[in-house]
């Protein structure tokens, strides 16, 4: 009896797997202090992807009901704690001469829009910049501090705060002009089969999105939701931190966060999500 029940369960699972292989149809409206905001979590693929897919989906569509629900209300989203910490840091006189972010930029809303268009090539310097690169520039050059650890809590709290200011805006990174060479390089990395398992980002997130690799429902690997709060780690994760994990899982030597490779890759992956909403801090299992 027991064995039979198990078998049945196994079949049930296999069926469930096959039936729910696609991203779930659902709509994300987030209850915030300022009222509800509707997110674009499914959008027509940007032109440069049209030959491989018709629609792009936020990773939100691939998660379980309970995980998706946590993102519907800021009150339930554990990532908001980090946003609050980021706000405290923003207002603190942490600079060598007592400077604070607020002292130069006023409120964090002055950062609205930045997350939606980064990584971008900075107009003045011609350097490819992520949000972290901009933070680092202020921390080191304008506040006289040592660089924050790229994936440490100060950096990620600040990233969370700044990302939130663009919540609901469509991702819109430039891929032409001065961005073009970085975009090409990122694209090449995306399609390179790394490591002893010889797997590329595209193998999992383009060829097999919607399928299950063991218990994991493969999403398109979009980064519009980053940083994400990860229930498994009980912490937030930046896009490049996620890249480290994915490359490591191919039995490869990874690149480091803020390496030229991962910056180019971040630009390229972001561009695959052009049109999706920035989710601020999303929730994943």
């Amino acid at each position: 009896m027991h064995r039979k029940a198990m078998l049945f369960a196994a079949f049930g699972l296999a069926f469930a797997g096959a039936a729910s292989a696609d991203p779930v149809e659902d709509t994300l409206v987030i209850d915030t202090e300022d009222g509800p905001i509707e997110m674009v979590t499914k959008a027509p693929a940007p032109d440069h992807l049209k030959d491989v897919m018709d629609w792009v989906y936020s990773g939100w569509h691939y998660r379980e009901d309970e995980t998706r629900d946590l993102e519907r209300d800021d009150f339930d989203n554990p990532g908001m704690v980090y946003v609050d910490r980021g706000l405290d840091l923003w207002n603190s006189a942490i600079g060598k001469n007592g400077e604070s972010c607020a002292g130069c930029h006023q409120g964090p809303e002055s950062m609205a829009g930045l997350r939606a268009v980064t990584p971008r090539v900075d107009e003045k310097t011609g350097v490819l910049m992520t949000v972290e690169n901009y933070i680092d520039k202020c921390v080191t050059e304008r506040m006289g501090l040592e660089s924050w650890n790229w994936t440490g809590s100060e950096m990620k709290d600040m990233l969370a705060l700044i990302s939130m200011q663009s919540r609901g805006m469509p991702v819109n990174v430039a891929i032409d002009g001065p961005a073009a060479p970085y975009w090409e390089k990122g694209k090449e990395i995306y399609y390179t089969r790394f490591g002893q398992l010889e797997m590329s980002c595209a193998n999992c997130h383009e060829d097999n999105q919607g399928r299950y690799i063991r218990a994991d429902h493969l999403s398109q690997g979009q980064i519009n939701g980053f940083p994400v709060y990860r229930l498994k780690d009980a912490g937030i994760l930046s896009a490049q931190q996620r890249f480290v994990g994915c490359v490591r899982d191919t039995r490869a030597e990874t690149f480091k966060p803020n390496s030229d490779e991962f910056k180019a890759l971040e630009l390229y992956v972001a561009s695959r999500g052009n049109g999706l909403s920035v989710e601020g801090v999303s929730v994943r299992h």
Binding site: F194, G195, Q196, E198, M199, R248, D249, A252, E253
Partner: peptide
């Protein structure tokens, strides 16, 4: 993946250590 192969990889790692 190829389970009995030791050459010809791009940036192979030490198992899953990265």
């Amino acid at each position: 993946p190829a389970f009995y192969k030791t050459e010809g990889f791009i940036r192979p790692g030490n198992g899953y250590t990265g």
